[in-house]
Simulated scan of single mutants.
Amino acid sequence: MQECNSIILKDIIDVDEMKRILNSFVLATGLGAICVDAQGELAIVPEEHEGYCLFCKEIRRDQEGRKRCNESMNKAGKLAAQLGEPYIYRCHAGLIEFAAPILFKDLYLGSISCGPVLMWDWDEAAVEEILSLTNDLGINREKLIDAGSNIKMLTGRNVQAAAELLYITANHIAKSNIETLQQRKELNDQQSQLAEMIFEQKKAEERIRFLEGRIKCKEYPIDKENDLLDKVRMGDRTGAKKNLNEILSVIFFHSSGNIELIKARILELVVVISRAAVEGGASMDKLLGYNYSYIFELASMNRFEDICFWIVKILDTFLDTVYESRNIKNSNLLG
């Protein structure tokens, strides 16, 4: 388990959705629940929770008490992440809380901290222990004892069930946003490469114009297309993507931003790539089905960057189909 410096909790978690879920949890169970980041600081607090219970609020009035609360939540969240499951623990003030980790792959981004609860009677012995643990804090003892008497009491089974529910919920939300984050990164990387290629092509054409007085650059790099098709037939994913990006930069440059012209050229490119995939061993019937749906998808797009990201995913699909067909043939031969 690692901590992540480049990705923060709110990159992965939809704040409004998490607030809605935590609000429902608080109302349904009567337990407090908040979301803390990788440093143990408050990140998402549902309106129904109002931050903390009266007991916790009294503890956190003291600076040292607030520090210990944050340290407890931070430590518990990291231990939960290491275990890969909810972690039930006693906080620094002696009450039961539990942490459900929020992970991005193997990176710890934060946790849902829930509680406090009691798993024993609020009797004289319990009060004495609480006062002993908080003896050095500058707080009102009477308010603390009164607040403690209102803390919800649960069985171990109830606590475990509540912890599991929060863990499953939080990580379902996180996983649903991971794909979007990855797509955004891939799109940014691709756009950066395209921008660099377009810039280099523009410089090259200006150099030719200066030397010869006219543009001798081809309007369409047929040699690059042939290289692309060869790599598709061979199943060379990395080489094919490199050639595709070079072709996309040329299409953009020579289309003068005309999105309909760009889409027409992209559709032609999809067709020839699919033919090359069939020549590489892919199923013709499967690719024909793909191509039919791709026509409607492309028609709905109006941004060049979206089209670029889309055709790269299509290339991946075609290559996956090539690999799949080869694996089936190899299995048949071995059988």
Rank of each mutant, 00 (worst) to 15 (best):
D11N: 15
D14V: 11
K19H: 03
R20S: 03
S24Q: 13
S24Y: 02
A28D: 11
A28Q: 14
L31G: 02
L31E: 09
I34W: 03
Q39M: 04
G40D: 08
A43H: 03
I44C: 07
V45F: 04
G51L: 06
L54T: 06
C56M: 07
K57M: 06
R60I: 02
R61W: 00
R61F: 01
R68M: 04
N74Q: 10
K75D: 08
K75L: 07
G77E: 05
G77D: 05
A81T: 07
L83Y: 08
C91V: 14
P101K: 10
K105I: 02
L107Q: 12
G115T: 02
M119G: 05
A125L: 06
V127S: 12
I139C: 08
E142R: 11
I151T: 11
I151W: 02
M153I: 07
R157Q: 08
Y167D: 05
T180F: 13
E186S: 09
E186H: 13
N188S: 15
S192M: 08
Q193K: 09
A195S: 12
M197I: 15
E200V: 14
A204I: 14
R209T: 05
R209D: 09
R214T: 10
Y220S: 06
V232R: 01
M234H: 07
D236L: 06
G239Q: 11
E246I: 14
E246N: 08
S249Y: 08
F252I: 11
S256W: 10
I266D: 01
A276E: 02
A276P: 02
N291C: 07
Y294F: 15
Y294N: 07
F296E: 07
M301L: 13
D306F: 03
V312H: 00
D316I: 09
L319K: 04
L319V: 11
T321H: 03
